[in-house]
Measured scan of single mutants.
Amino acid sequence: TGIVNVSSSLNVRSSASTSSKVIGSLSGNTKVTIVGEEGAFYKIEYKGSHGYVAAEYI
């Protein structure tokens, strides 16, 4: 489990890349469940599926 540490919002992406499609966003202080790690990204549970967020902001 981690907490989103941004002042505005954090993009949730379809894969572990900044060039991948943005599938949603999370606001600051949102609690997320981390299920894996790929490079600089965490794989998280997101809306019944999975998404990827930049690990530096969690």
Rank of each mutant, 00 (worst) to 15 (best):
G24S: 02
R13A: 04
S25D: 06
R13T: 10
A40R: 10
Y46S: 00
N11W: 13
V53F: 03
G2A: 07
Y42S: 02
Y57F: 13
S9H: 12
S27H: 10
S9P: 11
E37S: 14
T1Y: 15
N11F: 13
N29A: 09
Y42D: 00
S19V: 09
Y42E: 00
L10W: 03
V53P: 00
K47M: 13
R13S: 06
S8V: 12
K47G: 11
E45M: 12
S15Y: 08
N29Y: 14
S9W: 13
Y52G: 00
A16G: 05
S27W: 11
S14K: 12
G51L: 03
V32R: 00
N5T: 11
T33H: 09
Y57M: 08
V4D: 03
Y57N: 07
I23P: 01
N29P: 06
N29S: 09
G51K: 02
N11Q: 14
L10P: 07
T18W: 15
G36Y: 05
K47F: 10
G39M: 04
I44H: 01
A54G: 07
V22H: 04
H50T: 10
L10Q: 04
T30C: 12
E45D: 07
V35C: 09
V6T: 13
A16Q: 03
S25I: 15
T1H: 13
K21D: 11
S25G: 06
S19W: 09
G48A: 06
S49H: 09
K31C: 14
Y57R: 06
S9M: 12
A54Q: 15
S20F: 08
T18L: 14
G24W: 05
V6F: 08
V12Y: 02
K43F: 05
F41M: 04
I23M: 07
A16M: 04
K31R: 14
S20T: 06
F41R: 01
N5F: 08
V12Q: 00
G39I: 03
S25H: 13
A40I: 10
Y46K: 00
G51Y: 04
Y46C: 03
A40Y: 08
S17W: 05
V32L: 05
S27Q: 13
Y46E: 01
V6P: 07
E37I: 15
R13F: 15
S25Q: 14
T18E: 13
A16T: 06
H50S: 07
A55Q: 14
S7E: 10
T1P: 08
A54L: 15
F41A: 02
I34W: 04
K31V: 14
S49C: 09
G2C: 12
A40S: 10
G48F: 06
N5G: 06
G48T: 06
G48N: 08
I58Q: 02
E56H: 10
F41G: 00
E38M: 08
N29G: 15
A54S: 10
S7M: 12
E45P: 04
N29R: 11
R13L: 15
V35R: 04
S17F: 06
I34A: 00
I3W: 15
V53C: 03
V22S: 06
K31W: 14
N11V: 15
A55M: 15
S25V: 15
S20C: 05
Y57Q: 06
I3P: 03
S25C: 15
A40M: 11
Y46T: 00
A16C: 06
T18Y: 15
T30A: 11
E56D: 08
S9N: 10
A16P: 14
V53A: 04
G48M: 06
I58V: 10
S9V: 11
V6R: 10
H50M: 09
V4I: 08
S25M: 14
S8R: 13
G48W: 06
S14P: 04
L10Y: 03
T1S: 10
A40Q: 11
K47P: 02
S7A: 12
I34G: 00
V4Y: 04
T33P: 03
S17M: 07
G51Q: 02
T33V: 13
S25W: 14
S14H: 10
N29Q: 11
N29I: 06
Y46H: 04
T1C: 15
S20L: 03
G24C: 07
T30Q: 11
T33L: 10
A54W: 15
K31A: 10
R13H: 15
V22N: 04
V22I: 14
F41W: 14
V22C: 08
S25R: 14
S8C: 15
Y52L: 01
S17C: 10
S49T: 12
L26R: 01
T30K: 05
V22L: 07
S27P: 15
I34K: 01
S8G: 15
A54C: 15
A54H: 09
G28F: 14
G36N: 06
G36E: 06
A16N: 04
V35T: 07
V35S: 04
F41P: 00
A54K: 13
S17G: 07
S49E: 08
Y42W: 05
S7F: 09
I44A: 00
G51W: 03
A40W: 07
I3Y: 15
E45R: 09
K31S: 09
S25A: 11
E45W: 11
I34S: 01
Y46A: 00
G24T: 02
G39R: 05
S8H: 15
L10M: 06
I3F: 14
K47S: 08
K31P: 09
S7Y: 09
T30R: 06
E38Q: 08
S17E: 07
S20A: 13
V12G: 01
G36T: 05
G24A: 04
N29M: 11
S19T: 13
I44L: 02
S17R: 07
N29W: 15
I3L: 09
T18A: 13
V53T: 01
S27M: 13
Y52S: 00
V35W: 07
T33C: 14
I44D: 00
Y42K: 04
V53W: 01
S14N: 09
V35H: 04
K43W: 05
T33D: 05
S49L: 10
V4N: 03
E37Y: 14
E38L: 07
S27E: 13
A55I: 14
G28M: 12
S8M: 12
I23K: 03
T1G: 07
S15W: 08
A54D: 09
Y46W: 11
R13M: 15
G2P: 04
V22Q: 04
